Simulated assay, not measured.
Amino acid sequence: MAPPVTEGEAPFRVPGVDKPCATWYKVVGDLKASKKLPLVTLHGGPGFAHDYLLPLVDLAGAPYDTPVVFYDQLGGGRSTHLPEKKGDEAFWSEQLFEDEFYNLLKHLGIVEYDLLGHSWGGMLAERIATKHPKGLRRLVLTDSLANMKTWAESARKLLAKLPKEIQDAVEKHDKNGTTEDPEYQAAIAEFFKAYVLRVDPWPAEFLHVLELYEKDPTVYHTMLGPSEFNITGSLKNWDIIKELHKINVPTLVLNGRHDEATDEVVAPLFWHIPKVRWYTFPDSSHMPYWEEREAYMKFVAEFLE
């Protein structure tokens, strides 16, 4: 029998915003009846939607039976959008997303939980975990990072492996500030096909996230910038390496062999988090839950046990 699905909105009072705001969520599984702790997921971006993480519903079904909580972070997906805050780096802060996370836990009545963060979601999960939140039992960091400088440098190295016309298109439009040009977007798509999701064709869920992002790139452009290797936003100097030793829960670090989260990017998480395991999926890039779905679920489920 398929696990129950609950969707809703958690009201979220945001300082500096006059209108009512809400966080949209989906729970797959029964939070009250399950014997397993819920797995709360944090999607990437920043500013994306949860949809591309939906393969994780596998963990809610047999044999794992783990309730999985998805939600769209403020400014993305089905949650409240605030395009009027584009460029406001002080507003789009890590603290805002931490506050939203705890607001959702309270709304859903979640006291104890496991946490899985992907990419930017992993960055947010790391920050949350360094503060020793009550109720956090285990942490899964999928395709994430500890230092944005290393991420950008690594992305540039990966770009250099692609055909010269793609490199030239990226360089030209980055230099000219014409990153909305179709030629630039096509070049970014080739980068994604090589290092983000090596599944052909791309699943509808991922395409939907990209469509939503194109309609409102407020958060991504403000916090990150026009692309993965042209980082101009508030996260440009993000670095949590010196704080990682504070994470005191068992942690699983995951990436793919063809991942934009290269071993160079991921290694500090392994070096500095005290109770940690690291596994690299051999046939995956940035989304192993699509590329090696069954193996990914088994690996995560065994860790959560």
Rank of each mutant, 00 (worst) to 15 (best):
P3W: 06
P11V: 05
R13D: 11
G16M: 10
A22N: 14
W24F: 13
S34H: 10
K35F: 11
L39S: 00
D51T: 13
V57S: 02
G61M: 12
Y64T: 11
P67W: 03
Y71K: 04
L74R: 04
G77M: 02
H81C: 05
L82W: 07
P83F: 08
E84P: 01
K86I: 06
Q95T: 08
E100W: 07
N103K: 09
K106W: 10
H107G: 05
H107C: 04
I110F: 02
V111T: 15
V111R: 14
Y113E: 06
L115K: 06
G117N: 02
L124S: 01
E126T: 13
K131N: 08
L136R: 01
L141K: 00
T150I: 12
E153S: 03
A155K: 10
K164V: 12
K164W: 04
E165G: 01
I166T: 11
Q167A: 05
N176G: 11
G177N: 10
P182V: 12
I188G: 01
E190K: 09
K193Y: 09
R198F: 02
D200K: 11
W202H: 12
W202E: 13
V209D: 04
M223K: 05
M223F: 04
N237Q: 09
L244E: 03
V249F: 04
P250T: 11
T251F: 05
D259G: 07
A267P: 00
I273L: 04
P274N: 06
P274Y: 02
K275L: 01
F281D: 10
P282Q: 14
M297P: 05
A301I: 06
